[in-house]
C-alpha cells in the first residue's frame, strides 16, 4: 500500500470520528433500553444499533471499506453459512409449533 504520511493523517482523523460515533451509539443503546417500546421493538433497536457500530468498526478500523475482492468473497461465504446457523433456532421453533 503506497500511502503517504498525509494519507495516514487523513485516516487518523476518520478514526477519531468513528471513535466518537461509537461512544455516542453506546450511550444511545443504553438510553433506549430503558424506554419500553414493547419487547420486540426493543430487541430490534438494540440489534440495529449494534449492527451499525459493528459496521463502523469493520469498515473503518478493519479497513474493509477499501479491501480487496478476495476478502469480500471470503466474508460473503462466511455470511451465507452464518445465516445457515441462524436458521437453526428458527427451524427448531418451527418444529415446536409443528409446521
Amino acid at each position: 500500500m503506497g500511502e503517504s504520511v498525509e494519507d495516514i493523517k487523513k485516516h487518523v482523523r476518520v478514526y477519531i470520528g468513528v471513535f466518537v460515533a461509537l461512544l455516542v451509539l453506546t450511550g444511545v443503546t443504553i438510553g433506549v433500553s430503558y424506554i419500553d417500546m414493547g419487547h420486540g421493538v426493543n430487541i430490534a433497536v438494540a440489534i440495529v444499533i449494534a449492527a451499525i457500530k459493528a459496521s463502523l468498526v469493520a469498515a473503518y478500523f478493519m479497513h474493509l471499506i477499501s479491501e480487496k475482492k478476495l476478502i469480500y468473497y471470503t466474508l460473503i461465504l462466511a455470511a451465507i453459512f452464518f445465516v445457515g446457523l441462524m436458521f437453526l433456532p428458527v427451524g427448531h421453533s418451527l418444529d415446536e409449533i409443528r409446521i
Partner: peptide
Amino acid sequence: TGLNNAKLGIWLFLASEVMLFGALFSSYIL
C-alpha cells in the same frame, strides 16, 4: 489477489471465528 499471505490468513481465521460465535449466538436464541 492484491493481498499478502497474512492478510488473507487473518480474514479466513475471522470467518471461522464468526462461525464459532455465530453458533453460540444461535444457541442463545434457541
